[in-house]
């Protein structure tokens, strides 16, 4: 929508292009271990951006996005099994993605209609419960094979190692998430959602179609998350209920966004990078302390920098500008 955001500057375009070139070049210079880390940052950064499509604009903070992550993975796994081995792997992945998106779309609409009527913590907990139910159901009913899981075929592209291939797939996924977020933020939908986030009743009174907007954001966010679940499972080569319906995935998406800055594009990705590097490299040998550190970071961020690192930097910059303006006026 015009009038709300400054146009993207040539400096921002340039920086983005530079980052992209760097990201494309990385797999040809980095070690497999470094690439696996980068993979995770791309995937979970992308998922955190997808979570922000709803949670970043509004206070509808889903504590159960693992539901869609798992739903997508299971949809693709079940379809892959039906298709049988004669279908090429790449085609299976594409069909699996499409099927996962369709199933998640339907499920997200069905869940959203009651759940989006709840506000604040009630929404958060309802989503948490929804994710738990899906996880339990997938394990309980034999048709879903949640407890045993599926083995997924190995995707091969000549000239690329597996780790490189999935690096590029995750990179594309992240870029799609970023693209959607940026387009959405600048659209009527994004402005309407921002208003819903600040005061839903007033937004409705001013003519913002709140129900439709919330539903749209929720569904897009859910479908992207499902895509992430499918790609993740293919990168592992197998899946069970315990690899995808993970409460820690739901909560990490919030944590990453919180660390970087909720409602920004770069924030969730920066947050994912910091937390993944912190737990896997800095504390790589101290597995025992991961939860302790994660918890401490979460508490510290909420208490000291609720707008995340990006918010912190912005506030500091604004304060500096204000003081220079005052000094200028005084002299």
């Amino acid at each position: 929508m015009r009038g709300f955001h400054k146009p993207i500057s040539s400096r921002q375009w340039g920086l983005s292009a530079l980052l992209l070139v760097g990201a494309v070049a990385l797999p040809f210079v980095a070690s497999p271990f470094e690439l696996r880390l980068a993979q995770q940052i791309l995937l979970f950064g992308g998922l955190a951006v997808a979570w922000n499509l709803l949670g970043g604009f509004t206070t509808y903070w889903s504590f159960g996005h693992a539901a869609f992550f798992g739903l997508g993975a299971f949809a693709a796994g079940l379809l892959g099994q039906q298709l049988g081995p004669e279908v090429p792997v790449a085609l299976r992945l594409v069909l699996g993605l499409l099927f996962a998106m369709a199933v998640t779309l339907a499920a997200a609409v069905a869940v959203a209609l009651p759940v989006l009527r709840l506000r604040g913590i009630y929404f958060a907990i309802a989503m948490l419960a929804f994710a738990q139910i899906l996880g339990e159901v997938s394990k309980t009913f034999d048709v879903f094979q949640g407890a045993i899981g599926f083995t997924l075929p190995i995707l091969k592209v000549p000239g690329l190692a597996k780790v490189q291939l999935f690096y590029f797939l995750f990179l594309v996924f992240l870029m799609v998430c970023i693209g959607l977020f940026v387009v959405m933020r600048r659209s009527r939908l994004g402005v309407g959602l921002t208003c819903i986030g600040q005061d839903e009743d007033t937004a409705a009174m001013l003519g913002v179609p709140t129900e439709r907007y919330k539903l749209t954001a929720f569904v897009i966010s859910a479908v992207l998350t499902a895509v992430g679940g499918v790609l993740y499972s293919y990168s592992l080569g197998f899946m069970t209920a315990d690899t995808v319906f993970r409460i820690d995935i739901s909560l990490n998406l919030i944590l990453y966004s919180m660390v970087g800055g909720i409602g920004t594009v770069a924030g969730p990705i920066i947050g994912a990078a910091i937390m993944i590097l912190l737990t896997q490299v800095v504390l790589g040998d101290l597995l025992d302390l991961h939860m302790l550190v994660t918890g401490a970071v979460l508490v510290a961020m909420v208490t000291l920098a609720p707008k995340g690192l990006i918010g912190l930097v912005r506030d500091m910059r604004r304060r500096r500008e204000e003081t220079t303006v005052e000094e200028g006026a005084a002299s």
Partner: peptide, 17 residues
């Protein structure tokens, strides 16, 4: 909307009204 500017507040009403 506390975090929006005066102009943005009015613009929302103008655009969605």
């Amino acid at each position: 909307f506390p975090e929006l500017s005066v102009q943005e507040n009015v613009l929302v009403a103008a655009s969605f009204g």
